[in-house]
Design a protein around this nucleic acid. Structure first.
Lengths: 223, 223
DNA sequence: ATATATAAAAGTATAGGTTACTTTTAATAG
DNA sequence: CTATTAAAAGTAACCTATACTTTTATATAT
């Protein structure tokens, strides 16, 4: 902005909303809150919060996520800003939208009891409030773009996993079935996975090797 | 956002900043204003403006662009939102950044005299205020992404142009030299250009055919 | 009138990557 | 020890990107 009449200008509430993706039981899931008041009581919303005076939007999103999940170093990326004058019936609120990726483990499944948040499969979401459906769709699109050029397994899978698990994650993100052979070839060509000596024999007699991300190679490849 | 204490929250000024790209004399250019007051007097800034109460950020950017250029239907895309608490020394201002593409013709070159705006080659920009350098860099990156998948000639070139002109535009956007033969093949494979009967003989004895975008095919290809 | 020079336009050959599909492998279960 | 399972490896066809070469059309010079 060029300096000009800062004082006569209207100010607005600024919030963040976050599409939090997780992966559980072979499905990509989204963390949602159920709204308890009118209007739109009973509908669901993304996780949100206000931007405080001492914070950037990124810092606000990080704070909200840490408070909710207890996790630090959550992967977070800005998606877009929603600013239609009447998008929120409660007042003029401009919302900066992010998406986040987190590993759903036992701890993270308890979010429901603590905060009333619930994981929903992205394939069958409930009705969302305001413009949150569009926020979700743009976030998923961004996640797909990200997953095209980088392996997103580290943010969504447990520390060790099989190629098949990784492929199922990708199947779930893109809603299609990747060819097992081609997927393996492609994924290993990134050169950022280390094969362990242990195998998962729960699904095949032969057994599938476990892999884990090599942090050093990840950094080198600017993943 | 979930409804919660709208009233106790701090409000902020919200602005838009716009990286306006144009193409002139074989160079990609950026439209800038020179700042007339301290702090940072003499440095240059992107084109900006406030978001009014009855506008979305997109509408604000469109209004500012129309007022500045007289053009309607300008190509505009949201890049990112900048929100660090102290990014603007004049006060807490959250800025939604866009990039725009416009055809520089005679009319558009007069911007300087009317508004004090000047076109700068992106290869040699002056020092920009605040975080505007970063805004520009993100905008150029977005433009490159866009140009990878879609022909951006319609937004930056005159109505008719030769393949060589289009290639020079791309050379300028990506700061590299595309192979003439390969570029031609690739560009025509999009199937959205119509060849005219007229030729440009100013640069070659043989003459290069003029082309124009076929709007219908453009729409079909979701360009 | 013919030759020359220019860059457009078309063509070619190689390499690399994607895709669909087949074969082999390892280990368990009957 | 044979059958079964999915992992893992391999293959062939196809498509695209890239570097490079050849042909074409025409204004200008001789």
């Amino acid at each position: 902005m060029i300096l000009e009449s800062y004082n006569n200008q209207e100010k607005y509430l600024v919030s963040i909303d976050c599409a939090i993706f997780g992966y559980h039981e072979g499905e990509l899931k989204l963390l949602l809150f159920q709204r308890e008041k009118e209007p739109e009581k009973g509908k669901w919303s993304l996780i949100g919060g206000w931007v405080n005076p001492d914070e950037s939007a990124e810092e606000a999103a990080t704070r909200v996520l840490q408070h909710l999940t207890g996790l630090h170093d959550i992967f977070l990326e800005q998606v877009s800003t929603f600013s239609k004058p009447n998008r929120d019936p409660g007042g003029r609120v401009i919302s900066v939208v992010f998406y986040a990726l987190i590993v759903i483990d036992g701890e993270r499944m308890k979010l429901s009891s603590e905060f009333g948040a619930e994981w929903w499969p992205v394939k069958s979401l409930p009705t969302l409030i305001f413009d949150h459906q569009q926020m979700f769709e743009m976030s998923l699109e961004r996640l797909r773009q990200k997953a095209n050029y980088h392996l997103v397994g580290r943010e969504l899978l447990p520390e060790t996993f099989t190629i098949t698990q990784l492929r199922n994650l990708y199947n779930s993100i893109f809603s299609k079935d990747f060819d097992p052979g081609n997927f393996r070839k492609k994924v290993l060509s990134f050169g950022v996975l280390d094969r362990l000596d242990t195998k998962d024999t729960s699904v095949s007699k032969k057994g599938a090797y476990y892999y884990k991300f090599n942090e050093q190679k990840l950094n080198e490849s600017e993943n």
